[in-house]
């Protein structure tokens, strides 16, 4: 084995280890029996999962996350999909092309800056400390993901399919329903998944906009790490990581089978 290949192997493995090991290392801690997050684990139990799903604050935060996540997903998917439909035409006037760049800005602006502004402005319209306020804040940062995903599939759709449908007698709305949206569905779904994930993971805007009643899971994890770390964190992390891996597998699998079908 040449020196080059050997060093490639070592470096590659080390980096993979650096990337993955932290995520794997905390998985067993979710099953500790102790109140400390230390190795070696004295005894195994599921008490922290029980805590996660039954203790008042945790349970409440999970429910809040689901409410806010679903609200964000619906709002962002609707706004993003409709907007992407308007932005898809490649020969748009300059105004719309500029707008396209602007739509991605919420991904770029530092969250704390946006949070300060939102807190100031939302307070004027009594939106702070409300579910609606948090959903709106999350939608602002989630909607670019929907726009990007939906726009990508829309631009991959051959215009001639829609022209064909029209020539065969389909009115514009029918073309949208029968051809455009079904073909854009994969992008809409992945946009929605991204939107939900963004909402689930959002902390900073939540800190600024939400009140104690809208404390989300991510927010709860933030203060748990900050104030008194407990193995419930490891249990929550376990749920997150396993969930991510499962979704990744499902997404990959469905893409794989779809491709296989097309090839056949």
């Amino acid at each position: 084995m040449s020196v080059l290949r050997f060093s490639k192997l070592i470096f590659g493995s080390a980096t993979v280890f650096f990337l993955i090991a932290p995520l794997i290392a905390i998985l067993p801690l979710a099953f500790t029996d102790s109140v400390f997050l230390n190795y070696p684990i004295p005894a195994y139990s599921t008490r922290w999962f029980v805590e996660l799903f039954t203790a008042g604050v945790w349970q409440r935060s999970i429910i809040n996350s689901l409410i806010i996540g679903c609200g964000t997903t619906v709002l962002a998917t609707f706004l993003g999909t409709v907007g992407a439909l308007g932005l898809r035409d490649k020969q748009l006037s300059l105004v719309l092309t500029t707008i396209k760049t602007v739509f991605l800005l919420p991904m770029v602006v530092p969250a704390v800056v946006l949070g300060v502004g939102m807190q100031l402005m939302f307070a004027r319209y009594a939106l702070t400390n409300t579910y609606l306020g948090v959903i709106i804040a999350h939608t602002v940062v989630a909607v670019p993901f929907v726009v990007v995903n939906v726009l990508a599939v829309l631009q991959g759709i051959d215009r001639r399919l829609e022209q064909a449908a029209a020539s065969l007698g389909a009115a514009p709305v029918t073309v949208l329903k029968q051809v455009t949206l079904p073909l854009a569905l994969p992008g809409i779904v992945s946009g929605a998944v991204f939107a939900f994930a963004t909402s689930l993971d959002e902390v900073v805007l939540t800190l600024f906009v939400a009140g104690p009643n809208q404390r989300t899971l991510a927010r709860q994890m933030f203060s748990t790490i900050r104030e008194n770390i407990s193995p419930a964190i490891a249990a929550a992390a376990f749920v997150f990581i396993v969930g991510t891996v499962l979704i990744a597998i499902v997404v990959n699998f469905s893409r794989g089978t779809k491709r296989a079908k097309e090839v056949r």
Binding site: D158, R160, L161, Q163, A164, A165, A166, S167, L168, G169, A170, A171, P172, T174, V175, Q178, V179, P182, L183
Partner: peptide, 30 residues
């Protein structure tokens, strides 16, 4: 007149068949 009211059949170079429909659904569309 908009395209859907012209009653003209169009055959495109790349055929423009609807990929999410079967052959018979494609033909039944009009």
């Amino acid at each position: 007149l908009p395209p859907h009211r012209r009653n003209m059949g169009v055959v495109f170079q790349n055929y423009a068949l609807f990929p999410h429909m079967t052959v018979s659904q494609n033909v039944a569309f009009p």
